[in-house]
Amino acid sequence: MTQRRAQADKADFPWWLVAAGLIGAWLLWQVVADDLYFRVLTTLSRGIGITLFVTLVAYAFATLLGLGLALAGLSRWLLLRQLARFYIEIMRGIPIMVLLLYVAFVFAPALIAAWNWATGWTGWEPMKTRDFPFLWRAIMALTFAYASFLAEVFRAGITAVDPGQIEAAKALGLKGWNRFRLVVWPQAFRTILPPYGNDFVAMVKDSSLVSVLGVADITQLGKVTAAGNFRYFETYNVVTLIYLFMTIGLSLLLRRLERHLRRQPG
């Protein structure tokens, strides 16, 4: 049995990570040793903060909206369930690129027009469409899109909790919010974490789509840099390297957290 386990552990050794590490080390050496690579990295590094800002803010908003949709979908009220399902199915059926363009050029101007109409009696100066930055339009679009995905993740995790646990909580006199906070959520979190983490990594990659709106993230700066120096190979090598460092690093951290939670009792 011990020999079989050792063989299984050897077979499960992450050779892919070794290969990725060697490629990453080679690319890092190119960045350090080659002045062109270093200049490209210096330029693109300004977009890392924008990429992380878009990802973190949009995912935080999507988490809150997705949790609200999941709870509405599990509500005893038919209207709430139908509204939640309507939103989820519509948003999941629209490509994120199309949603970005729709929010940026249709929804945002309509929202500003509605605001100006609602506040017209106050005498405030009307807002202009250009007063709504494309950065926040992109964040809004990603929030709308990922909320529909996370709603299904939360719904699956909550419904996976043993009904007997909920009945026991009711017998102990716990009311709705305390029952959810103390009993349902801690157990659902273990089920939710893997797909929730995967969606976060996917958000890091999908944040590159905001470049179509001219937001100065890593991808947009890469396009501008390559168009200026005509060194597409070197520029997009650096773009790829930055995204790989972020996504693979996050994936490894999430796997470690999952293993830690599996070792916890209960």
Rank of each mutant, 00 (worst) to 15 (best):
V31A: 11
R39L: 08
I166T: 10
R85A: 11
S148H: 03
W117H: 15
R262S: 12
M91C: 11
R4Y: 10
R85L: 12
G249T: 14
L67I: 08
F13Q: 11
Y87E: 02
G120P: 04
A168G: 14
D9R: 13
T235M: 05
S148C: 05
F13L: 07
L65R: 10
A62W: 02
Y102L: 06
K205N: 01
A151M: 06
E89D: 09
M246Y: 09
R46M: 13
N178A: 13
L261P: 06
M127F: 05
L71D: 01
I166M: 12
W124G: 13
A70I: 05
L135V: 14
A60H: 00
L65E: 02
A72P: 02
W16K: 11
E167K: 14
W15Y: 12
R5I: 15
T219E: 00
D12R: 15
F13S: 10
E152P: 07
A19T: 07
L254V: 15
L135Q: 08
I158F: 00
D162N: 09
G164I: 09
L65H: 04
R5W: 00
I94C: 03
V215E: 03
L193M: 05
M246I: 11
N116Q: 03
P163S: 01
I112K: 04
F105Y: 10
Y102W: 06
E89T: 13
L28D: 12
A113K: 05
N237T: 13
G21I: 14
T129E: 13
Y232N: 13
T119W: 01
G66W: 00
L100R: 09
S207A: 14
R76N: 07
L100H: 06
